[in-house]
């Protein structure tokens, strides 16, 4: 017994020596820790950044804003770059979790379209730089839906009973319902929220399922006629199945942003800003947009995209359509009301 214990001790010692040696080796190259959505970058871009600036990038992925937020809030991580959505950024700004970004270090910021600057969640562009943007809308299968689709009301049409896919996300599903009713999707008014709840309960028997990422498989495979989706996913699905078409209903919708931020946990703010500047380089932004299919806020990158993508209203809707869209705001304490509605609808 004693002998084996000694052996184990020796082994642990040896391993820790080896580990500490590699640790020393890493110190010459700075490490930049990036935390982004799953499948949301062209990996070759990362390699290019590492080569050009002699910096190691450690790249991790998350599936929801909430998951990312919970991890950062817990405090055990040391990420340098995060790419959350706007309402989470607002929350992080309010909770003093983000570094201010020095735009002097980001000369390529000039390529970002002005209409994506000075947005409500970060009014003076101090904390975030837009990475992608898009809308929420209805994706429908032209072989199953013969009538024109232009209103959220079609999701309440009994003709399409059990052919409708909703998002399993309380902000999005309640948000579009509020829009259908003509309310703001950031409302905190009890009566308006109650109307939305009743509408969602009425809709429930017609809904085939409340889904997450599976929506892509289901719509491409023709399992449902109508689905509520993000524009970026719609681009992908349309490419895979030409019968699909995407529309932002006339009542308006949600417009969203995923922007790059630097959390206070970062020890490498300089390198993080270097990385953000790199992402704003037209050539790089083009590569990313081309790969992930989501819309880029980079004016020069848009010009490089193939014409059919650039002119696709799904990814690059006309301004008057965007004018009808609202951006999510952080609901703070009212989120509980939304949660309750969502539970009531789904527990029915």
């Amino acid at each position: 017994m004693k002998k084996s214990l000694k052996a184990i001790l020796a082994l642990t010692l040896a391993i820790s020596v080896v580990l500490s040696m590699t640790g020393c080796g890493g110190e010459q190259r700075t490490q930049l820790k990036v935390y982004n959505w799953g499948d949301y970058i062209d990996q070759s871009v990362i390699t290019e950044f590492e080569k050009r600036y002699n910096i190691d990038v450690i790249y991790d992925e998350f599936a929801t804003n909430e998951e990312m937020y919970a991890k950062i809030k817990a405090g055990a991580s040391d990420y340098d770059i995060l790419i959350p959505s706007e309402y989470t950024i607002k929350r992080m700004i309010d909770e003093d979790m983000l570094h201010k970004i020095d735009l002097n270090n980001i000369p390529n910021y000039k390529y970002i379209d002005d209409k994506f600057k000075n947005l409500a969640f970060d009014p003076s562009n101090e904390y975030s730089v837009p990475y992608t943007w898009g809308t929420v809308g209805i994706l429908y299968n032209k072989t199953m839906v013969k009538e024109p689709v232009n209103s959220w009301k079609i999701l309440w049409d009994e003709k399409y009973s059990k052919q409708i896919l909703m998002m399993d996300s309380l902000r999005d599903s309640i948000g579009i319902t509020l829009k259908m009713l003509g309310y703001s999707l950031n409302t905190k008014d009890d009566k308006e929220l109650n109307d939305a709840k009743e509408a969602l309960m009425k809709q429930k028997p017609l809904v085939l399922a409340y889904v997450g990422d599976e929506v892509k498989d289901k719509m491409i495979g023709g399992e449902a006629a109508l689905a509520v989706v993000w524009s970026g996913d719609a681009m992908y699905m349309k490419r895979e199945n030409p019968d699909l078409e995407y529309v932002v209903p006339k009542e308006g919708s949600n417009m969203w942003f995923d922007s790059v931020v630097i959390p206070k946990t970062s020890q490498h703010k300089k390198e993080a800003e270097l990385f953000i500047n790199f992402l704003c380089e037209p050539e790089i932004a083009y590569k990313i947009a081309n790969y992930i299919g989501y819309s880029t806020p980079n004016t020069e990158a848009v010009k490089m995209l193939p014409e059919e993508v650039r002119n696709d209203k799904t990814a690059y809707p006309p301004d008057e359509e965007l004018a009808r869209c609202e951006v999510f705001e952080d609901l703070a304490d009212s989120l509980v009301k939304y949660d309750r509605i969502w539970t009531e609808v789904k527990a029915q």
């Binding site: 809904v207 085939l208 399922a209 409340y210 889904v211 789904k346």
Partner: peptide
Amino acid sequence: RLLGGAHFT
């Protein structure tokens, strides 16, 4: 979630 389509919380 997967087989019930999140209908059945």
